[in-house]
């Protein structure tokens, strides 16, 4: 391309391009001879990592900084959440505070396709699910006329249901970090049905081949379920069993969350 006919209206790539090298993951079957590809047992969760306060802006601790934030990892899932408030909102209910949630996949977060930066219908739907799962745990009547906002960004996702439940855990940690009054910490866990066997905390490959996925979010010390979502067909007794197992897993997630929060209170980050 000669210089005088250079097209300035478009992004011009280099004249020569090289195809990127792909790592060949092969055609990994998620379930081979009864076990899982990553070697976990059927009810084993992926390891969890939490950190509160990663988004507190330092040193300029400014009024625009979130009042609480959290970063959460579960296997390959990486989520960050910022909580603002309680603060003055545009809509104000004189009796109760309002809780709003915003959920967004980062453009590079889903390995199978690039996400547009404009929110899709599924992101809005998940935001609504998160709102409904978290709202019962927040003491909104303690914050009349105020507004609490949570902004969730998925940095890497691995399994839709697992990502939603990880997002719930992440919001819980961020709300607790912000010092917002809660009835309980909400812990969530997902499950999928594969060959009439329930498998906990499935990743994308495992969810893809499953006939049914569900997640349960729970307030373990209050012993209440705040949200239950199932996609796919099962027999009623199968769902019963799954909810039972999920509840147990939630208790384990809860233990991790509360142990972390206690430790972070004793040793405030500098």
């Amino acid at each position: 391309m000669s210089a005088n006919i250079f097209d300035r209206r478009r992004v011009n790539g280099p004249p020569r391009s090289v195809e990127p090298l792909y790592t060949d993951e092969g055609d990994v079957k998620p379930f081979t001879n009864g076990g899982r590809a990553d070697g976990r047992s059927l009810d084993q969760l992926r390891p969890i990592f939490i950190k509160t306060g990663p988004l507190a802006v330092q040193p300029t601790f400014s009024p625009t900084a979130p009042s609480g934030s959290a970063y959460y990892e579960q296997g390959k899932i990486r989520i960050s959440c910022a909580v603002y408030g309680p603060r003055q909102g545009r809509k104000s209910n004189p009796r109760m505070g309002s809780f709003d949630c915003d959920f967004q996949y980062a453009p590079f977060s889903c390995s199978w396709k690039r996400r547009p930066h404009i929110k899709g219908a599924d992101e809005k739907e998940i935001a609504l699910i998160l709102e409904q799962a978290m709202a019962p745990a927040i003491r909104l009547e303690a914050y009349p006329k105020a507004c609490i906002d949570a902004f969730v960004t998925v940095i890497e996702s691995d399994g839709k249901f697992a990502t939603i439940s990880a997002a719930i855990n992440c919001i819980s940690a961020a709300l607790a970090d912000a010092g917002i009054e809660l009835y309980d910490i909400v812990a969530a866990c997902s499950m999928s049905l594969n060959a009439s066997q329930w498998v906990s905390d499935c990743n994308q490959a495992e969810e893809d081949v499953s006939q049914c996925s569900l997640f349960v979010s729970r307030m373990p010390s209050a012993d209440e379920i705040t949200y239950l979502l199932q996609q796919g067909k099962t027999m009623p007794d199968q769902t019963d069993r799954a909810v039972q197992t999920c509840s147990n897993s939630c208790a384990r997630v809860y233990a991790v969350l509360s142990r972390y929060l206690q430790a972070s209170m004793e040793q405030p980050a500098s």
């Binding site: 010092g179 009835y183 929060l261």
Partner: peptide, 17 residues
């Protein structure tokens, strides 16, 4: 502050001391 009661039990509503 920072607590709530249900029946006779007092629960914490925030993380803290």
């Amino acid at each position: 502050h920072g607590t709530f009661a249900e029946r006779t039990t007092i629960y914490s509503s925030v993380a803290g001391a």
